[in-house]
Design a protein around this nucleic acid. Structure first.
Lengths: 119, 119
DNA sequence: TTAATAGATGAGCGCTTGTTCATATATTAT
DNA sequence: ATAATATATGAACAAGCGCTCATCTATTAA
């Protein structure tokens, strides 16, 4: 009989009841991958910086590029990601497009991360 | 005089005072990249799944591999990442190494993410 | 209409990252 | 000591991702 993970250590370390209990309590795979995708948005310095700026003030793409010393293109690409994940919204005013946070508790998410790393 | 971002739209959309104010309020670059690195840990389904399991119960590498239907090696590599970021801790018991969450408020970080995506 | 300008976007490139495979280390049993 | 087993780890490879560059769209001014 071929060896597999399920049998590799069933005497010493596999506690079948514990494994079963955990398997039942696990959220669905779809939800978990959505959660990972959500955190991916915060997992890049540029996007974090953009969010920090918008935390302070609504701002157009051009201003964002200057504040962050990056090209308009790079900023625009990232704003697209942020918008797809519904973290920012925008409004057009003539040629200018202003971006702002789409959600109030983005601040609390960032704050919570800050708390963890500054301990 | 060469065109640059600072002058590309200074009449219409650059509000120098706003830009200055935001620049002052921004956290340091080091802190921001640490924050991004912190969220990177949550930005992968496998690591999220591991954390979810450990949320329920302390568990050895072998059990984790079975619960998540992945190889021991893959799990071990990710546990290393989680440990480096101080999200999990471990204790050895004979040949077996048990992993558990290192920090109480990991649960609240995951919960907060869940809240955002299930709206 | 034409020119100018803010922003959006697709292609391409280089870097990062998660997994696999092979192998090394650590502990226990014989 | 030798074998068995749980875990750790380095190398390599494929996939994903962020930036640049060129170009396109949208809006306004002349």
């Amino acid at each position: 009989m071929k060896k597999n993970e399920a049998e590799c250590c069933d005497v010493i370390c596999i506690h079948k009841d514990r494994v079963q209990k955990v398997l039942k309590s696990m959220p669905g795979e779809l939800l978990l991958s959505e959660l990972a995708d959500f955190y991916k948005v915060f997992a890049d310095v540029t996007r974090i910086r953009i969010l920090c700026v918008l935390l302070e003030s609504e701002m157009c793409v051009c201003d964002l590029a200057e504040v962050l010393s990056m090209t308009q293109s790079a900023i625009s690409h990232q704003l697209r990601v942020l918008k797809q994940m519904k973290l920012v919204k925008n409004r057009r005013e003539g040629k200018t497009v202003f971006y702002s946070l789409a959600d109030g508790h983005i601040q609390s998410i960032i704050s919570q991360g800050m708390e963890h790393i500054t301990e």
